[in-house]
Simulated scan of single mutants.
Amino acid sequence: MQISGISAVVTGGASGLGGATARALAEAGAKVAVFDLNKDAAEAMAKEIGGVACVVDVTKDDQLEAAFEKAAAAQGIARILVNCAGIGISIRTVGRNGPHPIDSFRKVIEVNLIGGFNAIRRASQAMSTLDPLDDGERGVCINTASVAAYDGQIGQAAYSASKGGIVGMTLPIARDLASLGIRVCTIAPGLFDTPLMQALPDDVKAALGSSVPFPRRLGLPSEYAALAKHIVENNMLNGETIRLDGAIRMAPK
């Protein structure tokens, strides 16, 4: 799919992987709607890239529906969806304070897995009403998983379950939407220099980066964005999860 002139939605688009992707799509000529829980950050990003800001909690279906309607009214129905909204926690199944709080587990699943699926179902419904482009394509949805889907570390039961669910639903959703001309892929990043990482001391970041076989550093959000852009442009990429991790395989801790 050619990016220039079409509309896109990026959830979690105000910073980190989502922010880099919003910038990359805008630079390629897309009209980008920035979906984010942080109002100020979403508006700042939208102003920077000439897009539209939509303040939304992806776990709230009414907010998500309203955000898609706002984006479509401003820029047209999106042919690109990139799901970057997500959260993570580190809690052992059984720890000093007892068993893993079930509400915390549920929250991670709701944001990362259910929120991502909800965005896909709403975006793809709208995409299905559009005229097909070359190859009969109407749109593409890109999810963000994690290497934790495969190599979950101590304390990552909730996070790994949510990301494993994203990997697991990629192929069946791609098959569901194939007849509509909508592709679905997932990116599973390794250790990336996101705002969460930036809060760590420099020596800790350096140690984490040196654990990557090659290149021996943290991944850059722009590298995630470059892969997302390529997935949009390469029509044969469908139903696949791509690890973007410098060949890292995570140790237990």
Rank of each mutant, 00 (worst) to 15 (best):
D193H: 13
Q198P: 04
F192L: 02
A206E: 14
L177I: 08
R217Q: 15
Q198W: 06
V212G: 05
P189C: 09
I182R: 04
F214P: 01
L196M: 15
I182Y: 05
F214T: 09
I187V: 15
G209Q: 07
L220E: 10
G190M: 02
P213E: 02
G219T: 06
D176K: 08
F192N: 01
F214D: 06
P195C: 12
S179M: 08
L218A: 11
L218Y: 05
P195V: 13
I173S: 05
R216C: 03
D193M: 15
Q198F: 05
I187R: 00
L200P: 02
R217M: 14
G181Y: 10
P215I: 10
G181P: 03
D176A: 08
A199G: 15
I187S: 00
K205D: 05
A188S: 15
A199I: 03
L218P: 04
I182G: 05
A206M: 07
R216V: 01
T194V: 12
P189Y: 04
L196T: 11
G190V: 00
L220D: 10
P201M: 12
M197K: 11
P172D: 09
L196F: 11
L220N: 11
A207N: 10
P201C: 12
F214G: 03
P195Q: 13
G209V: 06
A178D: 07
R183Q: 06
I187P: 01
L208T: 00
V212N: 03
A206S: 13
A199K: 15
S210F: 00
C185L: 07
L196N: 11
R175T: 04
I173H: 03
L180Y: 09
R217H: 08
P215M: 12
D203N: 14
V212R: 04
I187E: 01
A207D: 12
L177N: 05
D203Y: 11
L220F: 04
D202L: 13
L200I: 06
Q198G: 12
D176C: 03
A207M: 13
F192P: 01
D202W: 06
A199N: 12
C185D: 11
T194M: 04
A199C: 07
A174D: 07
P215R: 13
S210W: 01
R216M: 08
C185V: 02
S210M: 07
P213N: 09
D203W: 08
A206I: 03
S211H: 01
L220W: 03
G219Y: 04
I173R: 00
S179F: 02
P172N: 08
V184A: 09
V184D: 02
S210V: 01
A188L: 03
S211Y: 00
G190D: 01
P195D: 11
S210A: 15
T194Q: 03
F192E: 01
F214W: 14
G190P: 02
L177M: 09
D176Y: 10
R217K: 14
A206N: 08
I182D: 03
S179W: 02
L191N: 09
I187G: 02
P215G: 12
R175Y: 07
L180M: 11
R175L: 12
